[in-house]
Structure formats: C-alpha cells, structure tokens
Design a binder for these strands. Sequence first.
RNA 1: GGCGCUUUCGUCUAGUGGCUAGGACACAUGCCUCUCACGCAUGGAACACGGGUUCGAUUCCCGUAGGCGCUACCA
Length: 505
Amino acid sequence: MTERKVRVRFAPSPTGPLHIGGVRTALYNYLFAKQHGGDLIFRIEDTDSNRFVEGAEEYILESFRWLGIKFDEGVTFGGNCGPYRQSERRDIYKKYVKVLLDSGKAYIAFDTPEELERKRAEVDNFQYDASTRMSMRNSLALSSEEVNNLIESGHQYVVRFLVQPGEKIVVNDIIRGVVTIDSSILDDKVLYKSADELPTYHLANIVDDHLMNISHVIRGEEWLPSAPLHVLLYRAFGWEDTMPQFAHLSLLLKPEGNGKLSKRDGDRLGFPVFPLEWHDPKSGAVSSGFRESDYLPEAVINFLALLGWNPGDDVEMMSMDDLISKFDLSKCSKAGARFDYKKMIWFNHEYILRKSDKEIAELFMPVVEGHGVKTDMCKLEKIVSLMKGRVNFVHELWDACSFYFIAPAEYDEKTVKKRWKENSARQMGELAELLDGLEDFSIENQERVVHEWIEQKGYGMGEIMNAFRLALVGEGKGPQMFDISGLIGKKETVERLQRAINVLA
RNA sequence: GGCGCUUUCGUCUAGUGGCUAGGACACAUGCCUCUCACGCAUGGAACACGGGUUCGAUUCCCGUAGGCGCUACCA
C-alpha cells in the first residue's frame, strides 16, 4: 500500500458550546496531523437544521485559537475541497444519493415519522431492516408507478441504505484492533431526507471524508457502533481502497459516580467543562469556561492530552511540541477516563510556576487594576516572583498579596490573640523608630540591623517577626518579612507599625 | 432487552508468563521556618471475580459481574 498523506478532520455540529471531550478529540487529531506533517481540516456538520445554534461556530473557532490548535484547511481557513460547511454541499450529496439509488444500494421510503413511531409502539424492538422492509411503504415493496405517483404528488420521503443481512463486517481500529459485527443487526439507515434536501450524518460524513481525502478518522467511541455501517457505505461507493483508517477514542467520564462527563458535574464540583464561557442565545444561561476561570491554555492542553493517552514514560509536563513528537494513537487507553479536575488544577499551578514573572505579572495586572490599585510592572514582577508559587490560579494572587498595596483595615482576631503579646506594642514602637532611622532601607540592611537589635535586646526572633507581620499584613501569612517591608517602603512600613500599635495597644 | 467496547492504588496511568507491580494527582506524617504557603522527604493505597492453560498467572483463553456507548428522518 502506498503511503498516503495524513489528512484528518475535526467536524463538530454547531449545536452549542464545544464540550471538553470534543476538545480532546480535536487535540488528538491535531497532534497526529502535525507529527506526520499532515493537514487538519475544520468541517462544520450542520445537516440537522433544527439543532443549529447561533454563534456556536464562531465559539468553536475562538476556542481553538485560545488553545493553540491550528487548522490547515476548512471553514474560515480556505482549501481546495470546499465548501466545508455541509449545509452548503447539498448538490454534492444529491449526486451521490442518486449513485446509490441507481445501483440499487439504497431505496426510497415514504413511511412518515408518525407511522414509524406507531410501528415502534406496536412491535417490540422494531427495526427497519431485511426482516421488515418489505412490509413498509418503500420503493422495494411498492410498484415503480406507485413510487412515482407518491413523489409527484409531493409526498416527502427519505432514502434508506439497503443492508444485506448475514454478513460479517470487519472494522480495523488503530486503538481497539479488529472489531467484527454481523450486518443483520444493522438497520436500513436513513441517508437523505427530501424534506430539507439534506443527508444525515452517515452519508455526508462518508462522502466528505472521501472527497476531502481524509486518511484517518479519529473520533469518539460513541461512533464505534456505526463504524460497520460506514465501512458498508465505502464499499457501496467502491471507495474501499481509500477508506480512512479508524481510531475510536474512549470517552471522558464524571469525576465521581456513573456516566459521562456533563455540564452539571462542572457546576456541582466547581470546574468548567467548556473551553470558553458560553452564553446560550435561547435560554440566556451562562456556562463557565476554562479561559474565564483563569486556566492557562497550556495547562488545559497538557492535562487533556494525558487523559486517555500516556507516552509510556514518567514525564508529565509536556509542551505542545513535546506532545506532537511523542503522541501515539496506539498508546491511547481503551477504557473511559474520569475527569480528574484536581489534577488539572495542579497542572495550572505547575504552569504558573514555569512561566516567567513578567508573563504572570502581565496576566495579573488587570486583576490588580480591577481592585482599583495603580502600580507599575516592575513592582508587580517582584511581587509575582515572591508569590506565584503559592497559588493555583493567577486571580488567587490578589488574596495572597493585596497587603502589598493596601494596609490592613483590620487585624485577624486569632492571629492577634496568638502573636500580639503584652510587650508587642512597646517592641513594635522600638522597631518603628529603628527602621525610621535607617538611611539604607534595602532588604539586606534591614535584616542585618533588625537582627542585631533583636540579639542586643535579647528578644525572641519569633515574637518580633510575628508581631511585625501582623502589623504589616493584618494576619499571619506571607513571605519573608523584609521582602514585604522592603517592597512597601520605609514610610508605609512605619505607618503600618504605628497604626497597629494604636489599634491593638 | 439486543449489539459492541471496556476492567491495575480513591483518580490518571506504566508494566510483566516468575518484579518488593513503577510514576503522578489527592490524602497522611515529618523536615525546612519569623508566619502562611512553596519545596523536600516518607507513608498508606491496586492487578474485579470464577474457571482453565502452565512448573508458575496480574499478564494467555473461557465465563461471570461491573462500567461505558449505540440501538432517531441527532450528530
């Protein structure tokens, strides 16, 4: 077999925000394409006009821009296989529906949805297939005259695929190996609806993948049961020799309990399941997104890549380039993976640690300004360097370090009880005087002078430092004391000391 | 119900016909220390069950059970 150029696609339906499982599928497609120097195509599968949601397509595109997943071809990206929106490919599908009809591989059926509904209610496990099709209203059971009359009198119809029973169909899956099923369990799937002149997923999918030269279909496990049908369709068109290779990915499951991951889990446990915040145009409901919840895109990518795939070594921190070089479809796990959002938070922490102080300071600046504080980048970078290791999210930096900008309005009761002793007011008074007299207010000099003074007076290091901290911070937290006083400056340090003495005395 | 997929610590997973079954998250303890964190160290914690095959099965085979998915004129 000649080596084919790798061409893969991500083909969502514009029915709402992009689920995080879909993001992972897109990511795996991207990694696979880039590793093989291939193309990733963005196709919109909007063959169900009833489920179209305004803004969904733009949302999906924006999500991938944020995550750094790039497409080579498709809707908004151009390419030679367009149009890439299925609703704009009606004429193409009609042509292939006719091919199937003419060759007897498909037939026309007039049964209305209501009739089928009734049938399903009457007959247990009713299925439109070899065992039932001759008793239904279709072009196999009716005379061609009747069929023509029905069409000409304006009856709506569908085109169904004619499945021959009793055949073993083999699907070769990169992740799961050989999957064999009996064609008898398949039903005569609807491929086309005259009502909206659009195909269903199955037909559109096969025609497009063929016409767009797709080499590998990497998609969710929910498609595995229909893979045999797809094989049959490739065969019916005579395209079996260029049929793409399949890889069916396991699904993402709830962090706890049973079932697949849903938006409700995120709401309940406090994490997003969508890349970006989504405002539902109909209900007005707002769903949180990773971006707005302050996750770094690199962290989301890294976490998602490892959910259902593992390079086989112990390395967990990987950039997009690392992932591209290491990714391996055959190493994807077969079983579903629970969405371990706590580990994702850890990844975010690690990425904050790895980013430069400057990068984090730039992300943090709007948060600071949002609290009505004006500061300069230089100071903020210093603060970030002292504090970034303590947080999981950039916005948490504010709670961790607001004391750099704002003097404590009150003093934490428990800390006061523990750290503010009988002698504290007097000692802090001495300290204020000592620091106020300092010419050189550098961290090093403060430290030297204060330590000398503590030793000379015979004070305890802890009693002084903890009371000092309470005065500057308002509670018992923060980095080394002189890193605080040094940054807020002599005047502010002395003022805060004096205020504490007055309030707590 | 039918069909298919699947099963290693609580979670994500590595791995093997013979190993003290490895790593990470989470959890616990300790160290560090002027506090709170970070960090570091240590610890507990798994081969779903029952039959085979085999000198020996977590690993191979068959069942059972659990989990997941599909079963639309949705994707």
